[in-house]
Design a protein around this nucleic acid. Sequence first.
DNA 1: CAATCATGTCGATACTCATCGAACACTACG
DNA 2: CGTAGTGTTCGATGAGTATCGACATGATTG
Lengths: 113, 113
Amino acid sequence: MSTPIETPHPSLADLRLATVLAALADPARLRAVRTLAATGELPCTELQQAAGLTISRSTFSHHQRVLREAGVLKARVDGARRMLSVRRDALDACFPGLLDAVLATAPERIGTR
Amino acid sequence: MSTPIETPHPSLADLRLATVLAALADPARLRAVRTLAATGELPCTELQQAAGLTISRSTFSHHQRVLREAGVLKARVDGARRMLSVRRDALDACFPGLLDAVLATAPERIGTR
DNA sequence: CAATCATGTCGATACTCATCGAACACTACG
DNA sequence: CGTAGTGTTCGATGAGTATCGACATGATTG
């Protein structure tokens, strides 16, 4: 029996630089990724709070989807919750140094929209 | 007498990660930057050709503007031409490793739109 | 089972953006 | 001075997207 895939993640071969950069180009998503990288696995609601994102749940769900479909995030189903985490291995394999550079940037340098 | 600024470039302190990522998130701009980094200084038309961008001159001018205002490109006036170059020093200073990661990515991994 | 919690999905809306052609400005060259 | 070359600016247009509220769905809990 194969592992059931609830939420589709792109495979390593399907990751594209332009797509990843576009996913990271939004300040809200950028903050979410940086928070998640710092805290480890988190469910959606907690991540949204930890990242200080004052947006609606549907909007956050949209951002989470963009990040997941770009290959930046992984979603693991845990009961009623989706545990989110950064796909560090995949990103490092496809774009060495990219995630590190993004995470190393000072918060003031991120930008606002 | 101060140096006349024909085309405004953002200073180091004004560079923002989200803005730079957004500028790099377009495949056409990504190809232009990578080509320019490989060739050194080039005028607009030659860069467009070298990058294999089959878009109108006005569209390329738009892309060049986005990259310049994000702090990715520098434009130097040389007679009737604008010599373009990558602001490697500024990018490395503000976002260490970011440009290297972008330039090190395999062409097939860039993505198309 | 009923209430609640955690998320996703849908449709609408407003805004941004990539693209083009046309017109303009400036330089170089005859 | 006129012509060609280089690049920008200006609307217009179509596609994409960030946002929301409302509803749906599955899990947890009392």
